[in-house]
Amino acid sequence: MAVTEHTYYTTVRDKDYQSLLEFFEPLVPTQTGGIHPVTTMDEWTKHIDPKRRG
């Protein structure tokens, strides 16, 4: 939470990005915000460092 901005960050875990968007769709007319897919640091480094793939 960024107190001075009244901004909240929520982490939600889901295997299907499309169903996550559909879940939050009813809030769209009344809220502002964004949905941003993220990954763990381990998963990300597997994609950028071929030696860590396995």
Rank of each mutant, 00 (worst) to 15 (best):
M1W: 01
M1R: 04
M1A: 08
A2Y: 11
A2C: 09
A2N: 13
V3F: 02
V3L: 11
T4N: 14
H6V: 02
H6P: 00
Y8E: 13
Y8H: 06
Y8C: 03
Y9M: 12
Y9F: 15
T11K: 08
T11F: 11
V12Q: 00
R13A: 09
R13P: 00
D14Y: 04
D14A: 15
D14K: 03
D14T: 09
K15N: 14
K15D: 15
K15S: 15
D16M: 04
D16H: 14
Y17G: 00
Y17K: 04
S19D: 10
S19W: 03
L20W: 00
L21V: 08
L21M: 07
E22D: 14
E22G: 03
E22Y: 02
E22R: 13
F24A: 10
F24S: 06
F24Q: 00
P26E: 04
L27Q: 07
L27M: 11
V28K: 15
V28R: 15
P29K: 04
P29E: 06
T30W: 11
Q31R: 12
Q31Y: 09
G33W: 04
G33N: 08
I35D: 01
I35E: 02
H36S: 14
H36P: 00
H36Q: 12
P37R: 02
V38D: 04
V38H: 04
T39K: 03
T39H: 04
T39C: 14
T39P: 00
T39Y: 01
T40M: 05
T40Y: 07
M41K: 03
M41L: 15
M41T: 14
D42G: 03
D42M: 08
E43G: 12
T45Y: 08
K46H: 13
K46A: 11
K46L: 05
H47N: 13
H47G: 13
H47L: 15
I48L: 12
D49T: 06
K51Q: 10
K51A: 07
R53H: 07
G54F: 04
G54N: 05
